[in-house]
Design a protein around this nucleic acid. Structure first.
Lengths: 139, 139
DNA sequence: TTGCGTGCAAAGGTTTTGCATGGCA
DNA sequence: TGCCATGCAAAACCTTTGCACGCAA
């Protein structure tokens, strides 16, 4: 939902997106985004940062989640956001990596949950936590 | 570590533990523990609640973690072994309700993800987002 | 009695909100 | 021009900390 509701294009929004994209696979807190912009000499008000990050999360352009141990909310840019509608995410609690998973078996999950639990799943926002292959090896 | 370091036995500590145990498979925030005690007419200072929950977490008696969408830290009493192993959460994006779901079909998910995606799921932390029955009706 | 536990209030952080102003379309 | 976006400050929260007093052992 809300894919087309882009709102206005402003200097601040461009700057925020740029910072998020530059961080690639890493997640950032609102504070970190604010600080990075400040250091670059292109400061943006923190309420703007919070509000825009929230909007991007609603639109499925960034992922918003909490990480155990971090006291703040984390945001992460989704590389190919158009494909994030119908797949799921695996978040490694060790290295912070976000894995995009497409899988038929898991696809049936939404259907099942709707039919048997009367719950309308928003698959784009579902995050499974655990430990990825690499981190498991290193334990 | 620190399993035997029980400290003093006090009225407040008994009350806090009692509330946690009574909630069984559910997780509680420090605020909820405080409120429940207040409603029961046996109020305990919130710093005491925070401090004791932290101690219980250190001692491995409760589990401390964050849940996406919940702004507060969650605590959950650990039964002997089976706690949140086969227990998933449905979080309604409309009303914020957290539904605790036990379901065989979903149980197989962890197994599937491990076998086919080499990812070790931490089921206790998995949260499915969507819209619950009641909110869907009201739309 | 000794030292840990408790409760209040204040501090420290993060996130949200109100409101006047600014700027895109 | 009509809205939406921005930024500041204040508010609202959650959690931690300092300190005097209370209480278990």
């Amino acid at each position: 939902m809300a894919e087309t509701n882009q709102g206005y294009k402003t200097r601040q929004r461009d700057l925020i997106l740029e910072v998020l994209k530059k961080q690639g696979n890493r997640h950032l807190t609102a504070q970190e985004v604010t600080d990075l912009l400040h250091k670059k000499g292109t400061a943006v008000g923190k309420s703007t940062v919070y509000r825009y990050l929230e909007k991007l999360a609603q639109d499925g352009i960034v992922k918003k989640y909490t990480v155990d141990g971090e006291k703040s909310i984390c945001y992460q840019f989704l590389q190919s956001h158009e494909t994030c509608i119908n797949h799921y995410h695996l978040k490694c609690e060790k290295c912070g990596k976000l894995i995009h998973m497409e899988c038929e078996t898991v696809d049936r999950l939404a259907e099942h949950i709707f039919e048997h639990h009367n719950f309308h799943l928003n698959t784009a926002k579902c995050v499974f936590y655990g430990v990825c292959e690499n981190c498991k090896k290193g334990e």
